[in-house]
Amino acid sequence: MDETGKELVLALYDYQEKSPREVTMKKGDILTLLNSTNKDWWKVEVKITVNGKTYERQGAVPAAYVKKL
């Protein structure tokens, strides 16, 4: 869990989004888990830093590609 009490997951593999509802992640990324009720796809929040600014993006990733921490 992070400092706000939200559950975290670890990306076990790289994943490139294939639709606007998904998010890209790299192996080793730590993501915030938002919903894991679907056994195949979990909704997560990814933090992306671009030019020193951090953005948050929500989307789905394959459940088999992440592990709860």
Rank of each mutant, 00 (worst) to 15 (best):
M1L: 13
M1R: 13
M1E: 12
M1C: 15
M1P: 13
E3G: 14
E3P: 13
T4H: 13
G5C: 15
G5T: 13
G5E: 13
G5H: 14
G5Q: 13
G5K: 14
K6M: 11
K6Y: 12
K6I: 11
E7C: 15
E7D: 10
V9Y: 05
V9K: 02
V9C: 13
L10R: 09
L10G: 01
L10F: 08
A11S: 04
A11Y: 04
A11V: 09
L12Q: 02
L12A: 03
Y13I: 08
D14C: 07
D14N: 07
D14E: 04
Y15R: 00
Y15A: 02
Y15S: 00
Q16E: 14
E17V: 05
E17P: 14
S19V: 03
S19I: 03
R21E: 14
E22Y: 05
E22Q: 10
E22V: 04
E22C: 07
E22W: 05
E22K: 04
V23R: 03
T24W: 04
M25I: 15
M25H: 02
K26P: 01
K27F: 03
K27D: 01
G28F: 03
G28K: 02
G28T: 02
G28W: 04
D29M: 13
D29H: 04
I30E: 01
I30T: 04
I30F: 04
I30D: 01
I30N: 00
L31M: 12
L31S: 00
T32Y: 09
T32M: 09
T32C: 11
L33Y: 01
L33N: 00
L33F: 03
L34D: 01
L34Y: 02
L34H: 02
N35K: 07
N35G: 07
S36D: 15
S36C: 14
S36V: 06
S36Q: 10
S36N: 07
T37A: 12
T37G: 09
N38R: 08
N38G: 10
K39M: 10
K39V: 10
K39R: 11
K39F: 08
D40K: 12
D40M: 12
D40Y: 15
D40S: 11
D40V: 13
W41E: 02
K43Y: 15
K43S: 11
V44M: 01
V44A: 01
V44I: 06
V44T: 00
V44G: 00
E45L: 14
V46G: 04
V46I: 14
K47S: 12
K47T: 14
K47G: 04
I48P: 00
T49M: 11
T49P: 03
T49H: 10
V50A: 09
V50W: 08
N51D: 13
N51T: 04
N51S: 08
G52I: 03
G52T: 03
K53F: 12
K53A: 10
T54N: 07
T54W: 07
T54R: 06
T54E: 09
E56P: 13
E56H: 15
R57Q: 05
R57D: 02
G59A: 04
G59C: 06
G59L: 08
G59Y: 05
A60G: 07
A60T: 14
A60W: 15
A60H: 15
V61F: 01
P62D: 03
P62N: 04
P62I: 05
P62L: 06
A63R: 08
A63W: 04
A63Y: 04
A64C: 15
Y65W: 06
Y65S: 08
Y65F: 12
Y65Q: 03
Y65C: 15
V66P: 04
V66M: 06
V66C: 14
V66G: 00
K67N: 03
K68Y: 08
K68R: 12
K68L: 14
L69A: 03
